[in-house]
Structures are given as structure tokens and as C-alpha cells.
Design a binder for these strands. Structure first.
Ligand code: SF4
Ligand code: SF4
Lengths: 144, 144
DNA sequence: TTTTAATCAGATAAAAATATCTGATTTAAC
DNA sequence: GTTAAATCAGATATTTTTATCTGATTAAAA
């Protein structure tokens, strides 16, 4: 189903981007996020909880509660979300599924794949969600 | 669990590489492959069946039966195995999981990711299993 | 202070992926 | 021809991932 990120991670990124695009407003309810992203409220709630406990977003309980970014959008990198939800496995494990390969006698796939995944890691680490929010907002609007 | 290929696909690649490394012998039984790769015989059998029906390997039934490459190892590309088992989704679907994105108003992730996945596709298409077999055989031996 | 609307936390359900079982079929060797 | 060893095909079981439900807690507003 998912390409390289888990579904949870995909939706986590989408949700954080949506929060970023709603700058200026205090908090956004999980219901609004669910409606905008066209996914069940309960599922995104679970994901938002994970992101809250890892410090990327913050939540306000009670009536008029909701979620907001925990820090400035130019301080949040995509890699933060990926690591919080999916962990670091994709950046370290063998792409062919061999257990405990030390890459002492690397197979020919190793070099190319290492380079690709390193570039991916670099991209995710460099890009802040600040750079993304407006374009993705348009994307979300096109879902309506 | 798996990075970008499904577990089936990982094991499919491993199995084809093992067949390639056993050049000269007529057929290899699924049991031998299972033992060498340290995975259940029944699971690899299912995968070998899929690869047989997609024409990458061929099988010989009955006593003394087993599997062998269907063509010269320099004619089999890694992409053949990936497409046969996992299909083309990873090369075309949105990495953020947005449905039907036409990339008319691409988000900033699009360009970088497209490039990375295109390079992956290119690598898988260019590399034949002939290039891989010896190194991977060493890898398999190190599992013992 | 009571009501209401929201998150939170943990349990549960459903779906998908992964793995295993069973029996039929095929073919080599006796 | 019979037996034995292998694939083949489809059903079933297990595990993991994805999704949903339920009830408790929190805090704003009446
Ligand atoms: S060398 Fe090959 S088998 Fe080893 S970790 Fe790298 S890709 Fe995997
Ligand atoms: S533009 Fe962005 S949202 Fe659209 S397919 Fe590309 S990565 Fe996905």
C-alpha cells in the first residue's frame, strides 16, 4: 500500500503540513484535520497523539481544544516525523532483507542503494515543513 | 519490516540470485533454497511459483525436480523480479499517500522524490543478476 | 457548578501481509 | 506398473498493520 513510509507516517506528515498551513489560528481540532484529509477522526487522533508525545506538535485538552505545531515551522524537519513514527530502520537495514549484513563483502546493490537512501535522508533532514505548507495546502484543497 | 520491497520480493530476489549462483547444476529444489536462505520451504515455494508463472525462472516437476533460471543470467534484470512480485506502485504512487495527485501543482517533495525513485528504477533496470551472483553467494554462505 | 466539547488512553476489530498446511499432480527410478 | 520425491494449487492460520470503539479526563463556557 504505502511506498516507503507507513500509512501512519504518510498521514502524520500530511497532518503536520496541514497544521503548518493553518498558521495564525490557535489550535485545530482532530475532527477538522480528519475532514480535510478525508480520513477517519479516530485514526488521525492516534497519530496526532504519537506526534504530541514526541514533541513535534502540542495539544490543548478540553472544549475548544485541539492541536498545533510545537515549534516554528522552519524548525520542524520532515525527518523528525519519519523517525518519530517509522523509526530509523529504512535508513539502516539491508534492502534485500538479509539479516545482520556487515557490508564487509557488499553486494553490488549496496553502493547504489546506500547512496539513494542517504540522499533521501539528507533531503528529509534539510527540508523544513515551512517550505512545504502552501503547496500542500493547495493539494489538500484539491481533495474537496 | 521490509524497507521498500515486500518481504516476498526480498526473498524472491534472494532466491533468484541463489539460482544464478548455482550455475551448471540442472535444477535446485525448493528445500535447498529454503535451507540456504534460512526461510520456510513452504513460503519460498509460493514465491518460486509466482516467479515461475511470470517466466523468470522455470520449474521441473516430479522426482529430481526443482527450479532453474528461465534465461541467461545476463538477461534477467532485478526490475523483472520487483515488477513480478510487487508491481509498479512504488514507482508511480505519491510518496505522501495523497490519492490521485496529478502533480500539476507539485509539492516540494515531489521533485526530489521523483528523482530518487527514477534513479532506483534505472539501477534495477540496468543491473542484471549476473553482476550480483558471486557477491551474494558469499553473503548467503556467511549466513551458515 | 453544571454542561458540553474536546483530547487521551487503552482495548478491540478489521484488513492486509506473511507464513503454513494439505492434498493432488507429476515424473524419475525401481 | 508401483513407489517415492518433488512441484503445484488452493485453503487455512498467524502476525502485523491499519482502523475503530469506548470510557475517562480535561477545560471552556453557560
Ligand atoms: S551488501 Fe547487499 S546484502 Fe549486504 S546489506 Fe548491502 S544490500 Fe544487503
Ligand atoms: S506533488 Fe506531492 S502530493 Fe502530489 S504526488 Fe508528488 S509528492 Fe505526492
Amino acid at each position: 500500500m504505502a511506498i516507503i513510509f507507513s500509512r501512519k507516517c504518510e498521514l502524520g506528515i500530511q497532518a503536520v503540513l496541514y497544521l503548518a498551513s493553518a498558521e495564525g489560528r490557535e489550535v485545530i481540532s482532530s475532527e477538522e484535520i480528519a475532514n480535510e484529509l478525508k480520513i477517519p477522526k479516530e485514526f488521525i487522533s492516534k497519530i496526532l497523539q504519537e506526534l504530541t508525545s514526541s514533541g513535534i506538535i502540542s495539544s490543548k485538552k478540553g472544549k475548544m481544544g485541539g492541536f498545533s505545531l510545537a515549534k516554528n515551522p522552519n524548525k520542524i524537519h520532515l525527518i523528525d516525523i519519519v523517525l518519530a513514527i517509522d523509526g530509523a530502520d529504512i535508513f539502516s537495514k539491508c534492502v534485500l532483507g538479509f539479516p545482520n549484513c556487515s557490508s564487509e563483502t557488499p553486494c553490488p546493490m549496496h553502493a547504489t542503494w546506500s547512496q539513494l537512501i542517504d540522499e533521501t535522508f539528507k533531503m528529509l533532514s534539510e527540508e523544513t515543513i515551512d517550505n512545504y505548507k502552501n503547496k500542500v495546502l493547495r493539494k489538500i484543497e484539491s481533495l474537496k
